[in-house]
Design a protein around this nucleic acid. Structure first.
Lengths: 218, 218
DNA sequence: TGAAGACTTGACCAATCGGTCAAGATGAGA
DNA sequence: TCTCATCTTGACCGATTGGTCAAGTCTTCA
């Protein structure tokens, strides 16, 4: 058996440094974009010299790619809540809530993603074409089945998904605008809960699901 | 009376050059962000030498500011369609349609705006705090009155506006993602019309307005 | 304990980019 | 036609920045 390492051993220090760098990088890339961010800025924020950052991540691009891959993993976790239940009311509610919570807790990740798409996805194009496309098509099929089973009104499934993505991510990507329109202050927990309930309410009613009533509207 | 100038006169050439530069700048700023865009790139796209660009716009920032102000003017025009009619069904429908059409026809402008907010609005913060804030508050008041008059269901007006902004702008800002998920092809006119109708339908039903029925749900 | 590898870091370099400049071309008015 | 202001442009400059390097320091393990 190999001996246990002290918490400050080589490998632990390495893991800790990589974590610090990735955390700093996520914020700096989110707020300045890939081009606007400098490795010096990221190193400063991580509290290490720039040369040391380049020891762990040889190029700015490799660091960026790692950040984007982490974000994509978080996104995929939330995507699974869509399948919590086969009832559209429960599935849509938990999916919207999960995405809203991610925007609240990981706004920087969402901003990096938005930047990527805005700049035509130079790094994540392959994810869009494979994982994201497959996920989207399979969920469209689920929604079409719900519609056929009269569990919800006949709406275009693709547009519904885009509305959910757009709205939930808006609370991260456009957070600065939302704060400015909220007297310059971040949304309180209460305000954010109101937003979540309102989004869920409008989407559910919008697709003809009325929690207190029965099925779909005509 | 001043003599008419030939079409290729000084002032006409100046106006034409400024238009070319602004058009090129909008696209390049949209796709690369402020930092990512280079004046050389913009000049190339406008078909003039870089030094000439700096003759018309002394600094990159002054050019950027002009682009953003043009975009804001277009945005304000669309905002007025909100007041076409005091009936929420008509007002919301025409506002959503106007914003969707802008995303379709001026996607670059929307992307520049998104970039600005993502980067904490270094150039347009004053617009957010004055014009946008006033517009938003006044429309929230209108929506609250509609709710009090039972013309629509009691939803949080702010969240409703954010959903409309997020969704309509998504079709410009995330156009690359939408294209990728559409087999790499731009949305056809027919697909885009479907999207518009679906968004209007979900929002109207979401706030309890049923065009074929009467007023609001409880 | 000492050798070898892993990590740290200040100094440095080449490339890029925003902006300048001076010399010339062009058009309008007298 | 002459003059002057406007416009055009290639060459250039200083600042920034991604990335390198060599000279160290620290851990680990035989």
């Amino acid at each position: 058996m190999k001996p246990l390492q002290k918490p400050t051993s080589r490998s632990a220090a390495r893991a800790e440094n990589e974590r610090l760098i990735l955390e700093a990088a996520e914020t700096v890339f989110a707020e300045h974009g890939f081009k606007g961010a400098t490795t010096g800025q990221i190193a400063d924020r991580a509290g290490i010299p720039k040369a040391n950052l380049h020891y762990y991540f040889p190029t700015k691009e490799s660091l960026y790619r790692q950040v984007v891959e982490n974000i994509f993993r978080i996104w995929l976790d939330a995507a699974n809540t869509f399948d919590d239940c086969d009832d559209p009311e429960v599935a849509l509610t938990s999916y919207i809530n999960a995405k809203m919570d991610i925007s609240r807790r990981h706004p920087m990740g969402s901003k990096v993603w938005a930047n990527e798409i805005l700049h035509k996805a130079p790094v994540i194009q392959d994810y869009l074409e494979t994982t994201l496309d497959e996920w989207t098509e399979s969920r469209i099929a689920v929604i079409e089945r719900w519609i056929a089973e009269k569990k919800m009104a006949p709406v275009d499934p693709r547009t519904l998904l885009y509305m959910i993505w757009a709205t939930t991510q808006h609370y991260a990507d456009f957070n600065h605008q939302i704060e400015t329109l909220n007297a310059g202050k971040p949304l309180s927990e209460e305000q954010f809960e109101t937003a979540k309930k309102t989004v869920v309410g409008i989407i559910l009613a919008g697709v003809g699901i009325h929690p207190n009533g029965k099925g779909a509207g005509a």
